[in-house]
Amino acid sequence: MVPIYTSRGEGKLLAVIGVVILLALVALLQIDAARKGQESLLSQILTTVAVPVESTFTAVGSGLRDGASNVANLPRLASENAQLRDEVRTLRAQDAVLREAASAAPDALRFAARAATLDQAIPATVIGYDPTNALDTITINRGSHSGVVRDAGVVDAGGVVGRVESVGPFAAKVLLITDYTSSIPAVVQQGRWWGIVRGSQTRAQMTYISQDAVLKPGMRVVTGQGRVFPPGLLIGHITSVVRGDASLYQVAKIEPAANFGRLSHVLVLPKPGSSTK
């Protein structure tokens, strides 16, 4: 029996075909943008629209969490405050002595350039995370309008956070150092052993360290000379070392210095070489 096609059924079929073609077109544009490492127009529009919504949700969440935490910790805060005041006084005195020493050191100019790099950093607030947690990324509320550029380094008060992966007009996405696909050149501060710090989802690990290196838990790992970070920024501390007899290199597990569980305020660094002359 020959089926009878009505105009309604035909219209529905055309609508389905149209939607499929449109989705395929959007998919191709998205893939092309991802391959070029750029933000697609759709990404820019949706990210810009999402910024105020995410900011509101994050502010409400942070307010509730901080409020509850403050109430719970109230008795401890007074004594901790007094202790911290003493600590700040001591550290300020030490800082003055170290600045004097640095000014007399032969590489004082390099030190000053690094300090200037941090002075030019752009403060930003974390407003969102990757919606699916597939990749370790965060969204910050500063974009190209504030001077954020792709591949700029991002730090917080503790240490290195990650690097800017894509930039929109009012927001940027940052790939964290804990992501599997992140890798940055690093140095073990005691001994100056070089290696590459890679992400391992919740923590990081330093690979390609020479078998001759004497590594101990607690040693500081800082950034090496690279195109994203200035050298000497704290990445984290070694927690354990894997040293196979048959392997060419050692692997050190690292506890990141940045607190990724409570990431709220970060600094976007200018790219090395683009800051001061």
Binding site: Q30, A34, R35, S43, T47, D130
Partner: peptide
Amino acid sequence: LYGALCGMAEDALAVRTGAAHM
């Protein structure tokens, strides 16, 4: 259709996923 549209929005807000969520 609903899944593809939701995935498209997730891809737009995520990084380097292309159209994988879609």
